[in-house]
Design a protein around this nucleic acid. Structure first.
Lengths: 200, 200
DNA sequence: GGCGAAATTCATCATGCGATGAGTTTCGCG
DNA sequence: CGCGAAACTCATCGCATGATGAATTTCGCC
């Protein structure tokens, strides 16, 4: 009645076990970060022996990389950058919030955020991704002397919001709905990225 | 010439060994985060047997807490909140940058940031600190309907900047000087916390 | 229907960790 | 100067981890 007496050897039928392992890995890495997640834990969640994880992926690090499989392609960033500069904050906010509110993407992003703080390789990976793929294109689009720095401030706003909402879970931002989130983020981003407003 | 042949037993003279252990712990926790830092590593840096760390502090967690000893007192926040609302962004930016540019404080903050992502207890600690000590007082001061949410966006901007600059080390913000940092941060914070400007 | 390849588990290793208890040396009070 | 307490190391335990290699079962092709 309980455990179906798991015997060694191939299981009958066709199940996407590899996929289940990846799902389990994503969940574990997202909720614990790279260091704290364990191959055995992933195997347990996937309902599988830990050696099978090694069989498919070789090492913990490779499971991690396979589980990430990053879902932001350059065209999306182009779509955000193009169009009316007066709406760039809103478009970027909507894009970011939609990424975070989609569970599979959120898991990947959380895994990255949770791992980047204690893993220099992860930091290097993010660094190598962010600058050419996000900072430079967006900065080119908005123009101005300190364009890159302003784009990075916008990125910082986004990263920090993710930390506050999903990692630290600070109230009230942890609980507001997606639409209110956009309403909060959009103006902040707009002021960083939009045409000069000469405020202060 | 090499190692002075360390024997067991109390060492002659008076050395602040406990303090050295705390320094080593701060350095280790700051650069690796809670999970990755090890009691043995701390002991090695302090030039001491790992059992001595346990002798003084009992457990790894208690070393961590002792190494933190948080240096932000409520009066500082009051100083930032008080005064001309038109200057609150600048005052807060200067305060934050001065914290991060002071090495001992930076180590403590980095330890927190590096640990909060993979340690729910740490997250709870930050949550319990941020809301009553920072969010509520500042929100009360600036007023308005969504004051708390706006304060948290400002906090998010600060947290995210710390991540970008010190953890991920994204260029250019990783390398700009303190004064330029203030110049970048101040307007962003001002727009979040200052009197309504009705932009967008 | 046989056979190689793929899928799966089992048993096991070496390593590094946090922690503990016992032993040794020095300090400082009386 | 004696003696208890404090500072310090050593040896060791038990545990969890990542990893490996051999054994077992099923699949799918010829």
């Amino acid at each position: 009645m309980t455990a179906p007496a798991k015997r060694p050897g191939r299981r009958p039928g066709t199940a996407d076990t590899r996929g289940q392992i990846l799902d389990a890995a994503r969940a574990e890495f997202a909720s614990r970060g790279y260091e704290r997640a364990t191959v055995r834990g992933i195997a347990r969640v996937a309902g599988v022996d830990s050696a099978l994880v090694h069989h498919y992926f070789g090492s913990k690090e490779q499971v991690f990389l396979a589980a990430l499989d990053f879902p932001v392609n350059p065209a999306m960033v182009q779509d955000v950058a193009a169009g009316d500069p007066a709406g760039i904050g809103e478009r970027l906010a909507r894009f970011v919030v939609s990424l975070w509110e989609s569970p599979p993407t959120r898991e990947r992003l959380l895994a990255v955020v949770r791992s980047v703080t204690s893993n220099e390789e992860m930091a290097a990976l993010v660094r190598g991704f962010a600058r050419p793929r996000l900072v430079v294109p967006l900065a080119a689009r908005i123009g101005g002397a300190d364009a890159e720095a302003r784009v990075e401030m916008a990125l910082a706003q986004i990263i920090g919001l993710a930390m506050a909402r999903y990692v630290i879970r600070m109230e009230p931002v942890a609980s507001v709905g997606a639409e209110e989130l956009v309403a909060l983020l959009a103006p902040a981003l707009q002021r960083l990225l939009g045409p000069a407003v000469d405020a202060v």
